[in-house]
Structure formats: C-alpha cells, structure tokens
C-alpha cells in the first residue's frame, strides 16, 4: 500500500514536470515571441514582415499542436512506466 502511494506520488511529480516544461514553451511562443518579445525578433524578416508577426498569426498555433501531441505520447509512456495505465 505504502509502495503504491509513493509510486503514485512519483508519477504525479513526473507529470507536473512535463506540464511545467510544456507550459513554459507554450508561454514563450505565444505571449513571448508573438507579443512581448516581438521587437527582439523584428530583424528576422519573413514574407514582407517580421518573425513575431508569423508567431502571432501562425507559428504559435503550430507549436500548440506539437505540444499537445508531445504531451499525449509522453504521458501514455509515463502511465505504462508507472503501471497506472488503463487495462
């Protein structure tokens, strides 16, 4: 019982770590590159405008997609590692 509980805690900690890393990327690509850090990217031109504009209108969406699928794959693996997956 105690064993199952500590493994549950470790699973939850590993999950939180993946969530935090993903959310940092989520934040940097949308609020960062798309809005607040846009002036820093103004030197990189793409199709008549700068990279920040691309991130705001398209790049962030592509990053969001990648993040969700990354999380699903990573978590399904984690579920199995800790033996908490559904049978």
């Amino acid at each position: 019982m105690a064993d199952r509980q500590s493994s549950g805690e470790a699973y939850w900690k590993a999950n939180l770590r993946i969530i935090i890393i993903s959310l940092i990327i989520w934040f940097i690509c949308s609020f960062g590159f798309g809005i607040m850090l846009r002036p820093m990217l103004s030197g990189i031109m793409i199709g008549g405008t700068d990279l920040g504009f691309w991130f705001a209108q398209q790049g962030s969406i592509l990053v969001f997609l990648a993040l969700i699928f990354f999380y699903a794959v990573r978590m399904n693996k984690l579920d199995k590692e800790f033996g908490v997956d559904e049978e």
């Binding site: 969530i19 993903s22 959310l23 989520w26 949308s30 798309g34 504009f53 705001a56 209108q57 398209q58 962030s60 969406i61 969001f64 993040l67 969700i68 999380y71 699903a72």
Partner: peptide, 20 residues
C-alpha cells in the same frame, strides 16, 4: 496584427485543456 489575440487565444486554450 493586434487582433492576432483571437488566433492565439482560441487555439492556445487547447494546450491548457489537454494538459491541465
């Protein structure tokens, strides 16, 4: 550009949904 908020806002929420 300023209304890019709609684009990011209405897609970025799915990351929160999926993760949280």
């Amino acid at each position: 550009y300023d209304n890019s908020a709609y684009l990011m806002g209405w897609t970025g929420g799915y990351v929160l949904l999926a993760l949280l």
